[in-house]
Write a protein that binds this DNA or RNA. Sequence first.
DNA 1: ATACTAACTGAACGATCGGTTAGTAAAGCA
DNA 2: TGCTTTACTAACCGATCGTTCAGTTAGTAT
Lengths: 204, 204
Amino acid sequence: MSDLSTPKRGRPGYDRAAILEIAVLAFNEHGYDATSMGVLASRLNLSKAAIYHHFSSKEELLQFALNHALGGLEELLLEPAATTGPAIDRLSHVLRGAVLMLADRLPYVTLLLRVRGNSPTERDALTRRKSFDRSVALLVSAARDAGSLRADIDPATVTRLLFGMVNSLTEWYQPTGPADAAHLADDVLALALNGLRTPSTSRE
Amino acid sequence: MSDLSTPKRGRPGYDRAAILEIAVLAFNEHGYDATSMGVLASRLNLSKAAIYHHFSSKEELLQFALNHALGGLEELLLEPAATTGPAIDRLSHVLRGAVLMLADRLPYVTLLLRVRGNSPTERDALTRRKSFDRSVALLVSAARDAGSLRADIDPATVTRLLFGMVNSLTEWYQPTGPADAAHLADDVLALALNGLRTPSTSRE
DNA sequence: ATACTAACTGAACGATCGGTTAGTAAAGCA
DNA sequence: TGCTTTACTAACCGATCGTTCAGTTAGTAT
């Protein structure tokens, strides 16, 4: 994550990333508001005041965490496979990438998906998230217009149901390995594109 | 809801259901923990203390709300169409019924789906919810064993993704009418069973 | 009128919240 | 050995939390 070579000065201890990791886990367990700086400190085996040496406020912890989740999703949309080629392929790439990103940054995305816009920080995050959703909705519409997707369901509804499925990972997925996430992404794509019904055509 | 004939005694005012309705909306907007009895009171144009005339605690408000959501889902599993006939038909009925129940009791189910188990009340609700999920998972397995559903994806994963899709309604669905919910249920079933891809066979 | 019942208010309570301050502990560097 | 840098602690602050309590208001019943 950070540089491993440079020797550190001063008393060793936590860095921001390590504190953030534990804080995000606590936020997800009890909810952001219900997680007091006191119990957060005891999880870190620190005093409350020590946290304020690394972060200026509780809300800044949330800010850094949400940015880590949103940054990953936003970078996904910029990848070449997401910007060139047939719309259906771009959509598949983004869908698969979203599953992998969720699996990789699970606690951070989990926190993001629970934000309700109760502060400027949360509202900013919601805005960025809606912007991401809108980009995916455009992909769905493009794929539909190209004849790759069924036209009898409203694209906005499709996008929401699709992301409902993907985002639900944060409610139950427990990472066991990187191959696990790739296989899960396969399942999501298969279910989303081909449906649950027994396929009438043969599969390779 | 309650009897309309019996004349009430004493000073008129809120009853439990009316308070609960507003409380649940507030809980969903800011989160249960972040919603203070003070702001709740001001939404009701009441004093904080007045709420305690109707409910013994903040947690009891949550308890009644969660029970209303869970009761609806549990009754769904007891309906004849959910207990008799081919597994695929029973699964379809439950899936459709869940969408309609979500639409009908949207704020209550929304609150239920955000519970994290941070108190005995919340843990009880999570237990009942898991029991419901388990019943649906059994339906999925039965339908798969009967050859109605594809066998190349693990039933547990299918169930979770399926309910991820359905439960995501609480994040975006805005009720406009009862026919609206029925149409939405159609879309969910179509997407879940047949997938997003352009159907190769003709549709009636 | 009087009694009764239910709905409600204002003020206060202990507890806990996020955050601050002043000082200390532990490391590398000179 | 100091000196600097970084990490931390104990004690505390004002604000807000859920809850309680003693009394008041607004209706119905007799």
